[in-house]
């Protein structure tokens, strides 16, 4: 009985945590939508993507529980990101330097 009560308490606190995070994420969506209405000479694009990455970070760390996971899962979560970066950076290197003249 006692164990069950403890379980309920733990559950209540996680539900509360998730609800708070949900409101934060919803707020971030509105912030990025708001950013799309301003003109900051390209920096709004940066801001929008930054907000998106923060949201992704929150989902990964708290909802997907990466914070409490084994090292191996970290490794593979990181691998996905790293390789995504490789694809992006090396391919864009080509596009961004194609018109350079030496």
């Amino acid at each position: 009985m006692n164990r069950k009560l403890k379980g309920t308490k733990a559950l209540q606190s996680s539900v509360r945590k998730f609800c708070i995070l949900f409101s934060v994420l919803t707020g971030l969506v509105l912030v990025s939508a708001g950013l799309s209405f301003v003109r900051l000479g390209g920096f709004e694009v940066l801001g929008i993507m930054l907000v998106a990455f923060v949201s992704v970070g929150i989902i990964v760390f708290y909802f997907m529980e990466l914070g409490s996971l084994t090292q191996v899962s970290w490794l593979w979560a990181g691998a996905g990101l790293l390789w995504f970066g490789i694809l992006f950076v090396l391919a864009m290197t080509d596009y961004l330097t194609r018109s350079w003249v030496w």
Binding site: T93, T97, W102
Partner: peptide
């Protein structure tokens, strides 16, 4: 036809 700099990197 990729960028010369990109080619050097690769």
């Amino acid at each position: 036809g990729q960028s010369v700099y990109s080619a050097a990197t690769f």
